[in-house]
Design a protein around this nucleic acid. Structure first.
Lengths: 110, 110
DNA sequence: AATCATTATCGTAATATTGCAATATTTAAT
DNA sequence: ATTAAATATTGCAATATTACGATAATGATT
């Protein structure tokens, strides 16, 4: 097949997986890091920052936007993209939670 | 094409992307959560917990292991899988870091 | 209005992922 | 030694992802 069986898992599990998946590509990590680095949210130059063609970058931006990790707004003839804090916070909260749980487990066998 | 251009990004970016990608599937999130829930690391029953066939689960376990998120050890005729804290901690640290950075940015445009 | 600059979409090729049946492998138990 | 139980591997079909050239869409500039 090849299609993920999302309907068999909880909404929360699917939500986290979607966020994680969106960051499961180095180009998208690089985009996030670039957006964090620049103060000005002038964003068309993301294309210049990455070793990828413009349509490819546009596609990655779309995925990040769909996942709720960035926001995009049209500004004249260019588009201003910037971080959507909420997405990052969800991931941060989730991993802090399960990382703590893992740490508190004393009954590790391996 | 379809092959990710990993050589154009930094090692750190690739490392995080690899970890995130490994958790970019609800079944693998479910596996991690199950391993956190059970005290005993008796793990063959992960198959019973998931709505997936045994070879599929085995494949997901392999990916989590390759990514450094779980550890597996042969125990008699079964295999004991459990959380590898290091992987989770890396993710936790990374997201805490960038989430904080995002929060401290005052120049958000959108 | 014609042109330019910026970004998005379409179409397509190459590759990767997901999932499972069938089969192999390994160890325990008989 | 056979058999049973648990897990891994193989092979394959269906689908998804990645990447880009070509093209469209939109707004700015002349």
């Amino acid at each position: 097949m090849g299609a993920t069986k999302t309907d068999h898992f909880t909404d929360k599990q699917n939500a986290i997986a979607t966020l994680a998946k969106a960051l499961g590509h180095p180009a998208r990590i690089a985009i996030i890091e670039y957006l964090l680095k620049v103060d000005t949210c002038i964003c068309g130059d993301i294309v210049n920052e990455l070793p990828l063609a413009q349509p490819t970058v546009s596609q990655h931006l779309k995925e990040l936007k769909n996942a709720g990790l960035i926001k995009g707004e049209i500004e004249g003839n260019s588009v201003c993209y910037c971080i959507d804090e909420k997405g990052l916070k969800k991931l941060q909260a989730y991993f802090t939670n399960i990382s703590t749980k893992a740490e508190n487990k004393k009954t590790n066998c391996c």
